Computed example of a mutant assay.
Amino acid sequence: MAREAAPRVQVDTLLSEHSPAKMLIELSESAHMVVLGSRRGGAVSHLGSTILAVAAHGSGTIVAVREDGDEITGGPVVVGVDGSPVSDTAVAAAFAEAWQRHTGATVALGQRQRLYRLGTLTVPRPIPPGRPRIAGEADRELLIRWHDEFVAAVGSGVFQDAAEWADARIEQGGVTFWETPGGTPAAMAGTTPEVAGQVRVSAVYTPSHLRGRGYAGAATAEVSRAALAAGVQEVLLFTDLANPTSNGLYQRIGYRPVADFAVYDFAGPSASA
């Protein structure tokens, strides 16, 4: 049915003999949205046990669709919030749905992000061989290439032109390499200019063939240390929640969660109406 309704959309089928709730909860950790159907009544207490389990323990956006519910056209989008951190995510999902109805634009959840603030800096051990070095004019072509590779790896968002980004970072001293003992850059981490006592760590990148050796952690710890030494009040960074490796790394360095965000992509002739 799904393939007939949207032939251009990739549809994968997964059959499992295990508990559906457990499987869906595990899958939700890397999914943008989990949609579940119910053949039972409309009250929450009458929803199936699988839906209740996934709603309570799953990650991301969970949508329950009733079989016997009559669709109401033109009605409002209702969202309930309780002041908890997840309330912002709920409001974002409700806005995306309302905007799609209002404009006819295509809406897709592009990424779930988490904002972190640096607490007590902890340099990850063991420190990989090598040393930090601030990128200079001689590194311009490498910065451009790594910026493009970073953008391709991230896969979503709005990014500055690579050459403009490299020139600005060189002028500001805003990118630090972690070099091997032989002087070859192995990873980079950048920081934005200070605004209101805050800087944000960005563009943390390691080429694929050099990953898993601690270079990105060392570079991130170094730019964090340098920011604190420069007297900034707060060091922040955003992560993709679908990447457990980077989230785990930043927490080991000393970054603590502040808030979660949902990034939606709007497309179509009425996307900016």
Rank of each mutant, 00 (worst) to 15 (best):
M1N: 09
A2Y: 14
E4N: 09
E4V: 13
A6C: 06
A6F: 04
Q10W: 00
S16P: 04
H18P: 01
P20I: 12
E29V: 07
V35T: 12
R39T: 05
G41D: 10
G42N: 10
A43N: 04
S45N: 13
S45V: 10
H46Q: 11
G60V: 08
G60H: 06
V63E: 11
R66M: 03
D68V: 06
I72K: 07
T73G: 12
T73C: 15
G74K: 08
V78L: 04
G80N: 11
G83F: 09
G83Y: 06
G83D: 09
D88I: 03
A96R: 09
A98L: 13
W99A: 14
H102R: 06
H102M: 12
T103G: 06
A105M: 04
A108H: 04
G110E: 09
Q113N: 08
R114K: 14
Y116V: 08
T120W: 04
V123Y: 12
P128E: 10
P129F: 07
P132D: 12
A138R: 13
L143C: 04
L143E: 03
D148M: 07
A152V: 00
A152L: 08
V154K: 02
V154E: 07
V154N: 01
Q160E: 15
A162E: 03
A162H: 12
W165I: 03
D167C: 02
A168M: 02
A168P: 00
A168N: 05
I170V: 13
E171H: 09
G173C: 01
G174Q: 04
W178S: 00
G183H: 11
T184K: 11
P185S: 08
A186C: 06
P193E: 13
P193C: 07
E194F: 06
G197Q: 07
R200F: 09
S202E: 15
Y205I: 07
Y205C: 01
Y205P: 12
T206P: 09
R211T: 10
R213G: 07
A219H: 08
T220S: 06
E222M: 01
A226S: 14
A229T: 13
A230P: 02
G231D: 10
V232G: 08
V232L: 03
L241G: 01
N247R: 05
Y250G: 00
I253H: 04
I253V: 12
V258P: 04
A259L: 14
V263C: 12
D265T: 13
G268P: 05
G268A: 05
P269V: 01
P269G: 13
S270E: 14
